Simulated scan of single mutants.
Amino acid sequence: MSKEETANVSSDTQPLFCDTNLARRIEQAEVDLIASANSAARLRNAPGFLIPVAGGVASFADHGSPYNKVTGLGFDGVPNGEELDRVERAFATYDEPTQVELAHLADPAIAAQLTARGYRLESFENVLGRPLDGSEAPLPLHDVDIRRSQDDDHETWLGVMADAAAHPDTEGVPWHEEFPRAIYLQAMRDSAGPEVRRYRADRGGVLAGGAELRLVDGIAQFAGAATAPAHRRHGIQNALMAVRLADAAAEGCDLAVIVTQPGSKSHQNAQRRGFHLLYTRAILVKPASGLAPN
């Protein structure tokens, strides 16, 4: 980071205490995101389902979609065996494993239940957050211009994002999933609802990266951040983060949330902007093999 960047990095944000109520609120925002993307996939006649389960949802958005998962469990009771049977068989219909993202603040009985049913632990992801008090300011960089991405440049923006995602930063624990370019692009289109703001970063007059900001129920969800390999290590992600923080505060959000891999560059960048670890999600997976569809 440059001296200019370091001077503008948040250092006095007090860590949030994350109790089960706050975790429930964040997980419900995630449920809303998954349900929105699933609905968009249904509008283009993709195969799939959305099943409510114990306060969360089981989503199959399309073949190979990153929105094929169970999320939001653990804050509204423990699912019974029949509910889980239904979910697992629904995924098995599409020869898809059942993947559960389970917050460590969720009811511990669910983790024990899933383990007994043959789920295996595949990885973890961190949920980081910080309060928004309206004092956030954009981070100026002399050779980087951050602005909103408009509809007429959406496809160009998507192309740069897909290219960047195809060459992930290798610091820290890698993501437990990788997706082909076509599936990544379709998933980005499915999640591009009216509550999502897209941002582009131009460096030297060239589109170098971008990011998304999703606003729901006072929560600002930070997602979709990527920088083309040739433009990395120039402060672009920090600048995108700062602009989105300022915009989220201006929109009246009181909480910013980002999901990262443990020890990743994204985790480090978020921490420098005042985010702190709130809780961890365990990724638990049960293969489709051995389950006969209804």
Rank of each mutant, 00 (worst) to 15 (best):
A226V: 05
Y67D: 04
F179I: 04
T260Q: 02
R86F: 10
S289K: 04
D95H: 15
G210W: 08
S39F: 13
L84I: 13
L158H: 07
N45M: 09
L207V: 01
T93F: 09
G129V: 02
S59Q: 08
Q186N: 09
E155F: 11
A220D: 00
E251H: 10
D76T: 04
S11N: 08
D152R: 01
V196E: 12
Y67E: 03
R42K: 12
P180M: 11
E125C: 02
V53G: 01
F17R: 12
Y279K: 12
I110E: 01
V243C: 07
D202A: 06
I183W: 05
A112P: 00
L141N: 08
S289L: 03
K265N: 09
R86G: 02
S149C: 06
D247N: 08
G72P: 08
F91C: 03
L255T: 04
D95T: 09
E5A: 13
Y67G: 06
G252F: 10
A106D: 01
L128W: 03
Q28C: 09
L22H: 05
L185E: 11
V78R: 07
N80M: 04
D169I: 12
D190T: 02
P15S: 06
A256D: 09
E125K: 11
Y67Q: 07
H234C: 04
A248K: 06
R120Q: 11
A187E: 00
L43Y: 07
S191W: 10
G193L: 00
G218M: 03
L102H: 03
Q237C: 07
Y67S: 00
A192D: 15
P131A: 15
N38M: 09
D76F: 08
A112F: 15
V100S: 05
H167Y: 08
L245F: 03
V216W: 15
F275I: 03
V53M: 09
E101A: 09
V31A: 03
F75A: 05
D143H: 03
Y67W: 15
A288H: 14
A166S: 14
H234T: 03
N80L: 01
G72V: 01
L185I: 15
D169E: 13
F124S: 11
Y279E: 05
A187I: 04
S135T: 11
P97G: 10
I26M: 07
A223T: 11
I34L: 13
I183R: 13
E27R: 06
L240A: 06
H104Y: 15
A111M: 12
H231W: 10
L102Q: 01
D163E: 13
E125H: 14
M241G: 11
A225G: 15
V127I: 15
A116P: 07
S191E: 08
L185Q: 12
